[in-house]
Computed example of a mutant assay.
Amino acid sequence: MNQIINMVMRMVLRRLVNMGINKGIDVAAKRGKAGKELTPEQRRGAGEQSKRAKQAVRMSRRIGRF
């Protein structure tokens, strides 16, 4: 029973950490501004930056497994 509880807790924590990392990347890409404050050009650039940063995080996780 203890192993099942530990497994579920690890799954939940992993998901929460991933959500926190993604949210932090999005905030950093927007430089702390709200969506309404950004021009369409800045919004597009922020989307590209956050996409690249998330890809880099995924790649570093894969490399870290070996």
Rank of each mutant, 00 (worst) to 15 (best):
34 A>H: 15
43 R>D: 00
11 M>S: 14
6 N>H: 10
53 A>L: 10
30 K>P: 02
26 D>E: 09
26 D>R: 02
8 V>T: 13
47 G>F: 00
10 R>P: 07
41 E>W: 02
36 K>P: 01
49 Q>A: 07
52 R>I: 06
24 G>Q: 00
6 N>I: 09
18 N>P: 02
57 V>Y: 07
11 M>A: 15
35 G>S: 15
32 G>H: 13
12 V>A: 13
45 G>L: 00
30 K>N: 03
16 L>Q: 14
43 R>A: 06
6 N>V: 09
47 G>L: 06
9 M>F: 13
39 T>N: 00
20 G>T: 02
19 M>A: 15
51 K>E: 11
54 K>N: 05
7 M>S: 12
22 N>T: 14
36 K>N: 15
34 A>Q: 13
11 M>I: 15
60 S>W: 04
15 R>H: 13
16 L>K: 11
42 Q>N: 03
60 S>I: 06
10 R>F: 08
42 Q>M: 07
14 R>H: 06
41 E>Q: 10
39 T>A: 01
49 Q>C: 07
13 L>F: 04
54 K>R: 10
25 I>K: 04
19 M>F: 14
40 P>G: 04
45 G>K: 04
43 R>G: 02
37 E>Y: 05
46 A>W: 01
55 Q>P: 09
21 I>F: 03
45 G>C: 01
13 L>M: 09
32 G>I: 12
35 G>C: 12
49 Q>N: 04
49 Q>S: 03
55 Q>E: 14
32 G>S: 05
48 E>I: 08
40 P>L: 03
8 V>A: 13
28 A>W: 10
42 Q>E: 15
27 V>G: 05
49 Q>W: 01
57 V>W: 01
11 M>W: 03
44 R>S: 12
40 P>D: 05
46 A>T: 00
58 R>K: 09
41 E>D: 02
49 Q>T: 02
46 A>Y: 00
58 R>S: 08
6 N>D: 10
58 R>L: 10
25 I>Y: 05
24 G>V: 05
33 K>P: 03
14 R>M: 10
57 V>F: 05
48 E>Q: 15
60 S>A: 13
35 G>W: 14
26 D>Y: 05
24 G>A: 02
32 G>C: 07
51 K>H: 09
26 D>F: 01
60 S>V: 09
23 K>N: 11
18 N>K: 10
16 L>P: 00
55 Q>F: 08
54 K>P: 00
10 R>L: 03
16 L>T: 11
35 G>F: 14
